[in-house]
Design a protein around this nucleic acid. Structure first.
Lengths: 199, 199
DNA sequence: GAAAGTATTTGACACGGTGTCAAGAAAATG
DNA sequence: CATTTTCTTGACACCGTGTCAAATACTTTC
């Protein structure tokens, strides 16, 4: 056996950073290889393909992100939790300069996988999976809130609505890049879901 | 002068169909040229670049779509109008088999234009422009509804919320492809905005 | 400690995409 | 009918992905 000359995890981090900034299609393995100080061929040897590399890098990110979310959703009144949730969401896709947007949403839309083109089914599932997990997290939060009398609606429907709004925010962020506006929409959504008066 | 051997508009239609199905990056000018029965070089001569061709094709689509929207938003009670609006929205990105998704949202997210990569600023503006126009349309509808006593909230905030939801729906459509679910979310949104009881 | 074994690295290659360009072809104009 | 102007066509440079065989460097085994 000959040992790897690079750190698997480092490459994953570097790769995801590039994918996040420039999109999957917009990032070449040469870019990543240069940035990581690794030969392009070595990346193929270690990961198989650009898509497989992306997938691993994305799964890594998704895990970290879920943990951060759980933390944000874990304390305070229901209103506080939802506020923290939207906060983290917006902060996440406004990070970097210029902001890089939401990697999940960008990835999901980039896979034009409709006709053999774009990222494949496996990638789509990875994206959908994160969205589903986040939805479940929000739904649990709402259910708990309902038990404490902080919420009176249907947790499943409300969670889906909230997730839809966050995905919409990720899109509007690309269109207008107006962060205060995004936060206003988020606040408005919380008011709608909890009822305007103090929830 | 030597006349064109192809119809400008036909090519635009054919090109947009491909772009819509496979994404901008996923569509090659060779594909379009083959489909349109035109030489690749002629496309460059007539449109300048792939991006410019896409832009023209998209503007064409955007015009048609706006007209259809105006029609959908033009009759009945406020609730009926909003229902028709969501209907057209969902129907639009569920068209084709397999469904092609929302071209605006897909385009917007595909331009990773963060770092010189992806579609350029001009394309971003075209997408953002359509979103802004649709928002204005919805806002006008809500304002008119408010004047007739069908709506009591803030039309600007509500319109923005509704648009955000439609963008979110476009994203979820890619993730889950579950049309009934999308329509449920839409109905739920109308209820939230108008107040559950009959609006 | 030397030799064999094995996974990694490296560079060359095929292929397909974008975009450019010069030369050929087809109408309009005088 | 020649000229002009524009379109068409095919060749080219360049960059991206992905594959492969040969070279390399570390481990294991004797």
């Amino acid at each position: 056996m000959r040992p790897r000359e690079f750190d698997h995890d480092d490459v994953l981090r570097i790769a995801f950073d590039q994918f996040w900034r420039k999109g999957v299609r917009g990032t070449s393995l040469s870019d990543i290889a240069r940035d990581a100080g690794v030969q392009r061929g070595s990346l193929y040897n270690a990961f198989g393909s650009k898509e497989a590399l992306f997938l691993q890098a994305y799964e890594r990110y998704a895990g970290d992100y879920l943990i951060a979310l759980q933390k944000a959703l874990g304390t305070g009144s229901l209103r506080k939790r939802l506020t923290a949730f939207f906060d983290l969401t917006i902060t996440n896709f406004r990070a970097g300069s210029p902001p890089r947007g939401c990697p999940t949403t960008r990835g999901l839309m980039e896979l034009g996988s409709v006709e053999g083109e774009g990222l494949d089914e496996e990638a789509r599932q990875a994206f959908a999976n994160l969205v589903a997990r986040i939805t479940a997290l929000v739904q649990d939060t709402l259910s708990a809130g309902a038990e404490r009398g902080e919420f009176s609606g249907n947790p499943a429907a409300a969670a889906l609505h909230i997730i839809t709004v966050t995905r919409g925010l990720a899109v509007l962020e690309r269109a207008f890049s107006d962060e205060p506006q995004l936060r206003k929409i988020a606040a408005h959504t919380i008011d709608l879901v909890l009822g305007k008066k103090g929830g």
